[in-house]
């Protein structure tokens, strides 16, 4: 089973999101980078599927050259091949991201990579949250797609049964590869990369493709933080002594 996983390099912010003064972007000077939880689960699922059924996992990121860092972390978690599609530092419209990815799939296949049976995505990217890059890649490549996936079962004949969750319930889908799948966190518990995995990933060769991104119809004009911060808390006390005041609050709220 040949699996492609698409991951996006995103800033890892904690308690607040620093912005550049002109609001044009997140100020990443003091931040590290990561990939989103949905995508971590996609990498883990790909590694498990290949361990159980054979094949290889290719992990791909479109973005700046630095996205190699996120590709390497996926290699450390067990992926076999890494690809960075260089699209520059600017933020891409989701249709431009999707065509860069779809083009890269074509280039890889032409260069002799076996066609991918599964193309795994996250449900939504951690920073932009467009929720559509996977759907656009599927449309571009003429493949079926199933999203919101929280369970993958491979049947005897290779037919997949997928458990898909949305707010209103669960749908089970059946599909034969090749297929595009967008997964949700909770599908599995991603492993921590092992030390040998990390060492191997550090040395691994990563393919670099040129993916100059075309424009699209969605153009960000600026970022801002929503207003209305809460006024500091009422401190009810310290340690076990606070129990009385806490239960007073519970009684006022009518929850005890």
């Amino acid at each position: 089973m040949n699996v492609l996983v698409c991951v996006k390099r995103v800033p890892a912010f904690g308690a607040s999101v620093p912005l550049l003064d002109d609001g044009s972007a997140i100020d990443t000077r003091q931040l590290g980078f990561t990939i989103g939880p949905h995508e971590e689960c996609a990498v883990e699922e790909a590694v498990r599927l290949v361990a159980a059924h054979g094949g290889a996992v290719t992990v791909l990121s479109a973005g700046p050259a630095e996205a190699a860092e996120q590709v390497r972390s996926a290699l450390a978690a067990g992926a076999d091949h890494g690809v960075v599609v260089e699209t520059g530092t600017g933020e891409l419209d989701p249709s431009a991201t999707a065509s860069a990815i779809a083009d890269a799939v074509g280039v890889l296949t032409d260069a002799g990579t076996r066609p991918f049976d599964l193309l795994l995505f996250g449900t939504a990217s951690a920073d932009a949250g467009h929720g559509q890059v996977g759907a656009r890649v599927a449309a571009g490549l003429g493949l079926p797609m199933v999203a919101g996936v929280k369970g993958v079962e491979v049947g005897d004949s290779g037919v997949l049964t997928l458990r898909c969750e949305a707010g209103d319930g669960v749908e089970w889908c059946r599909v034969e590869p090749p297929v595009v799948i967008a997964v949700r966190e909770g599908l599995n518990l991603p492993r921590y990369p092992s030390m040998p995995g990390r060492l191997k990933a550090r040395r691994a060769a990563i393919d670099v493709l040129d993916g100059a991104g075309a424009g699209g119809g969605l153009v960000p004009l600026g970022l801002r933080a929503p207003g209305a911060a809460r006024a500091g808390p009422v401190v009810l006390g310290h340690g076990a002594d606070a129990a009385g005041p806490v239960v007073d609050v519970f009684e006022r709220l009518g929850v005890v």
């Binding site: 009422v234 340690g239 606070a242 129990a243 005890v256």
Partner: peptide
């Protein structure tokens, strides 16, 4: 902690001491 700063009410202390005391008080 940001959660404390943004909360309506806060108790400063170890959960392992605060929670049993709250349960007992209820």
């Amino acid at each position: 902690a940001p959660m404390v700063a943004r909360a309506t009410y806060a108790v400063l202390g170890d959960v392992h001491e605060v929670l049993p005391a709250v349960v007992e008080e209820i």
